[in-house]
Simulated assay, not measured.
Amino acid sequence: MKILIGTLSYKPNVSGVAVEVELLTQFLLKKGHQVVIVAPSRSLRSHIEHQDGLTIYRVRAIPSPIRRGFYLPIFTGRLTERILQEVQPDIVHVHDPMAMSRYLQQSATKHGVPTVASNHFTLDYIGAYLPGILRPIVLGWLRRMYVGFYNRCQAVTAPSVTVVNYLRSLGVRDPIEALSNGVDIDRFSAHTSTEQTRRSYGLPQQPIILYLGRMEKAKSINVLIDAFARVHRTVDCHLLLVGGGDNLQDLAAQIAKYGLSKSATLTGLIPYNSVDLAPLYQVADIYVMPSSIETQSITTLEALAAGRPVVAANGGALPELIKNGVNGILFRAGSSADLADRILTLLHDSTLRSRLSGAAVKTAAKHELQKSLQLFEDLYETTIRRVSH
């Protein structure tokens, strides 16, 4: 097959979508398919890149007004039409409902090519970045745009049943499938010595509480820091925050306000392909996901694969992944007091940590990466057959 993938987020961007698109692309190339990526340029100039058998059309774009380091394509209608004519794909797969994807879908329909659309975020995520006075107006428009776009596609996917049900509640029609992002079990379950990681990052011989992901307001990391301050009054422990983002300096200031700068490590950005990434999970005693807007949470899947006891917000799609008291613990979203209590419960109960760890690994095994990616290839084939009949 020749597959054209359209996405607003692709390397060098750092996001779950960028990781998912790269993993899917590499899988498809290894299976012998041709893959073409359409993604934003980081300037007003469109150009073509060639990397390891992959063609990337970079479309002129401007900086995003709400997310630093991200770019939004502009004036893409004619360009996407030309790309479709040049590439002549068997199927188009877009990873957002924004303007570039809509133009790709329109051109694909014009040429009789089916479109698969993957949804990776809910309107709540966008709403977290909008000023209060504009929020209802913008979200109302986005909802109508969401529904209209997805209903023009031949298949829609989301990473969890929670998001599938959310899309249906908005008015998106079937076929919609829940296809997990997947996780590289072998990579994240490998047990290595933690001493080198502790030395490399200056981590003490204390229980480590880990969060790994983007440092953004919508991720509610401030709730984790407030909870850590409560926990630290009772237990000598260390907070490890791994990732970069717009909110990093504010989070460092919040930690300093509590007088806990020596009890916390902020590593900054560590790329997905870094050899340091998996060992950072292994060094942790507890993994915390404080965000309540996750559509699945790739990093929570990675923590489960690493056998880490997880404490996650009881919101978004996390309760679908984390079963309270079985493979992790849920806390009341937004409540630092409840989160602190859950962390303390785990720190004081090694038997519970061990039981959750074993169940975590079994949960991750259900989301094995290659099996998850294979489902996308299967979906392409069935969609092409269905549309051609």
Rank of each mutant, 00 (worst) to 15 (best):
V38R: 03
V283D: 00
V223F: 01
G53P: 06
G244H: 09
V310S: 08
V19L: 00
R233I: 04
T351W: 01
K31H: 13
Y281C: 07
R173I: 07
P63T: 06
A61Y: 14
L375N: 10
T351G: 04
S263L: 08
F121D: 12
V19E: 05
L212K: 04
A252K: 15
R230V: 00
V92Y: 00
L123F: 02
H232K: 15
A108I: 08
Y166L: 04
V14H: 10
I343G: 02
P204N: 07
R214L: 02
Q154M: 04
A39M: 04
A317L: 12
T122V: 13
S335N: 14
G202W: 12
G259Y: 04
A128Q: 14
I37R: 07
I83F: 05
P131R: 10
A155N: 02
R173K: 15
L104F: 07
Y71F: 15
V283Q: 00
D341A: 14
E177Y: 13
S335F: 12
T351P: 00
E294F: 09
V387Y: 10
P131M: 12
Q296N: 06
I83T: 08
A99E: 13
C237D: 08
R308E: 03
N13K: 09
V156S: 11
T194P: 05
T162Q: 12
R67F: 11
Q26T: 09
A61K: 06
N181K: 15
V94Q: 04
M98P: 04
L248Y: 05
G358C: 06
G316L: 02
G315I: 02
V38M: 11
Q85V: 05
I5M: 12
Q26G: 02
N119H: 10
G315N: 01
S43F: 04
I208S: 08
T299S: 15
F121E: 11
Q85L: 14
V36R: 08
T265K: 05
F27D: 11
S64K: 15
I225E: 03
D276F: 02
E294G: 05
P207Q: 14
L304T: 12
P89K: 04
S388G: 00
L134C: 13
N222Y: 05
E216I: 10
F188N: 02
E377G: 04
A364P: 08
K262N: 01
L44I: 06
Y103D: 13
Y166S: 02
V387F: 11
C153P: 10
P40N: 06
A337M: 08
D186M: 01
L330H: 01
A264P: 08
I322W: 00
I37C: 13
L4F: 09
R342H: 09
C153F: 00
M100P: 07
P114W: 07
T234I: 15
R60E: 09
Q206N: 07
L241M: 13
D276C: 03
G16M: 05
S297D: 03
G69V: 03
R144D: 09
L28K: 04
L84H: 13
D378R: 11
L8N: 06
D338C: 08
G325Y: 10
Q282M: 10
D349T: 06
A360L: 02
S336Y: 09
L139R: 10
L167A: 06
G259A: 02
H120K: 06
L139I: 15
L260K: 09
I3W: 03
G315H: 03
D174A: 12
